[in-house]
Amino acid sequence: MSVKPKSLWQKMWEPKDLQSMAPATKVLSYSILLFWTFIVLFPLYWLFVTSFKLPIQVSDGPYYIPFIDFEPSLHAWEYIFIDLGRDTLRPYMNSIIIASSSTVLAVFIGSMAAYALTRIEYKPKVGSIVGFIVILGLVVYLTVVVKMQWQLTLSIGFALFVSFVFAFSRYFKRSLGNNDILFWIISQRIMPPVVSVLPIYIMFQQLGLLDTHFALIVTYMAVNLPIAVWLMRDFFARIPVELEESAMLDGASRMRVFLTIYMPLAKPGLAATTMLILILSWNEYLLALFLSTADAQTMPLMVAAQNATRGPQWWYMSVLIVVMIVPVLIAAGFIGKMISKGQLSGAVKG
């Protein structure tokens, strides 16, 4: 008698076959997934509704649903797109140009290094590295403290380094491996940007490149390179070495192997890396603040700027945040398609 309910209980947790889930597990899984969907989407929904609210509707809130518990207003959208007009579009275009170019560069250059670090063994000499750092320190010292011309100190430093390497490199025995290079690369991302922004500012100021797209593209490329190298390395490592070896036997050069075998096969990884770096450079704030003044200003500055002497202008801010997500979403959709295509072509070739 009492067996029946127990068996129902058991039934709930027992899958019909290996491919499908038990009913209870299914309910549980879906409710977790839906719950998380709510967590993810609610803040975005709130931003979206806020962009249609009048100031008084925000400070007197909460109001949840437009038309039902408050009368939506387009005032914030009008302010951002009509009153500010070109002042919104310019940073928008800047962001698109800067983020996309720096991403492409970072991913390509980073992939080259990642490929090299997975397949070629490097043995940089400890002595040369120490020598380099000492000489660079000297250059910085002479420029900053002794106030010599940077062009001069840099060329002296370079000359010193070259002669140093030629003169002493054969006495250096101890060398580092690929893992050390890798770690050195990633460690460059640990430094908080606050600390490195001033030297970078001075560098571009000396070159007369402040407030240009170029400065921001180069900087973003540099700060994101480590991530590109690291992520791509994992994806390249999974590609069987045999493919490369047979191609090399056929006489293909390294560059060709990299371009025609590795890059296409790693497309899913390439897409994921591109996406991540695109997002990071799209959203970067502090470096943009200093390297741009007017012409090259980017969107995150616009968002942050909505908090001024009158407190955060939630409605304007919400508009900007919402419109800032759009291009990234489009890019994500586009890149997502590339992933599935990449897998397909990869399968055909493999």
Binding site: Y201, Q205, L301
Partner: peptide, 24 residues
């Protein structure tokens, strides 16, 4: 020509411009 930067960073932005001799 009015150039604007976020309120919280106006002080350091101006100072950096002056100190480094950028004078933009």
């Amino acid at each position: 020509n009015i150039i604007t930067v976020p309120y919280s960073d106006l002080y350091s932005k101006l100072l950096t411009d002056f100190v480094t001799g950028t004078n933009s």
